[in-house]
């Protein structure tokens, strides 16, 4: 299967923060959710993918090409939505369109107008009067208006009300009917991913923990609950993280089948949510 984004052995350090040997692949034609706690390195990774930041070492290729020498060609095919405001505050959305439109070969005014109507955005009001959600909608309309093959979004749902959040997910879902499109987006609202993500990439402390198909996560991972007397130094090895209370323990495993054979009926095995996985990985215990 073709990879749209490939990060290989990426190393990047700032003061007090480090991305260590990060390798990620994003498959063409699918939605990949990019999760991790605050400060895990999600935004930094996205900035490196967009060539806003340069890695210290390692290679990044987008559509199978490196940025050096292919920057314009690659960016023609990417649509982006960021968490921060990136618009000039003192001009209108109409002017903003005037600035952005000539940059893209495939700009489609009709599509743009259609999304502007759908999102109820005012064309003649200054960008500074836009709320965070409106700016996000404007970014999305722009990203969709030039028929980008790859849409990269950094926390797109963080400033949105639940109604538009769902609407956004519907739009993305519709978009994915076209098999040539790829979506890569970071979020920490993991319930968003239940609806549309095909793959989940999870990073923690600048390290890649896993990239898995969504349904596989439920097959592999499990929350195990039982009494404390079941735990000893050997059985504890089976878990990624264990939380002990005086009533018993709760633990996360990455190998559901194995745990089931070891403990049998003595424990309760539950489906983990992405939040459970993030929580236990972060805490470690």
């Amino acid at each position: 299967m073709e990879n749209v984004i490939e990060l290989q052995h990426i190393q990047k350090s700032f003061n007090g923060f480090e991305i260590k040997d990060l390798s990620i692949k994003v498959k063409k034609g699918f939605v990949t959710g990019f999760i991790g706690g605050n400060g895990a390195g999600k935004s930094t990774t996205i900035k490196m993918i967009m060539n806003l930041l340069q890695q210290d070492s390692g290679t990044i290729s987008i559509f199978g090409k490196r940025y050096k020498g292919n920057e314009k060609e690659i960016k023609q095919r990417i649509g982006f939505v960021y968490d921060d405001n990136i618009f000039y505050e003192n001009i209108t959305l109409k002017d903003m369109k005037r600035i952005i439109k000539p940059a893209y070969k495939n700009w489609d005014d009709k599509t743009f107008q259609q999304y502007i109507n759908q999102f109820d955005l005012p064309l003649n009001k200054n960008m500074k009067t836009f709320s965070k959600g409106m700016k996000m909608k404007a970014s999305l309309a722009i990203a969709l208006a030039h028929h980008a093959e790859l849409i990269i979004m950094d926390e797109p749902t963080s400033g949105l009300d639940p109604i538009f959040r769902r609407e956004l997910l519907n739009i993305l879902h519709e978009l994915m009917q076209d098999e040539t499109k790829t979506i890569f987006f970071s979020t920490h609202i993991t319930t968003d991913l239940d609806r549309i993500a095909d793959y989940i990439t999870f990073i923690h402390n600048g390290e890649h923990i896993f990239t898995k198909e969504f349904y596989k996560i439920e097959e592999d991972y499990a929350i195990v609950k039982g009494t404390l007397d079941l735990l000893d130094s050997e059985t504890e090895q089976e878990f990624l993280a264990i939380r002990k209370t005086n009533r018993g323990f709760e633990a996360l495993t990455a190998n559901k089948q194995r745990v089931a054979t070891i403990f049998g009926d003595t424990v309760v095995v539950e489906k983990p949510t992405l939040e459970d996985i993030m929580y236990y990985t972060k805490k470690g215990w």
């Binding site: 060539n51 960016k75 960021y82």
Partner: peptide, 12 residues
């Protein structure tokens, strides 16, 4: 206005 992020994300 953070426009450097915008300009650098556009095909320039």
């Amino acid at each position: 206005d953070n426009a450097n992020i915008l300009l650098n994300s556009l095909p320039y």
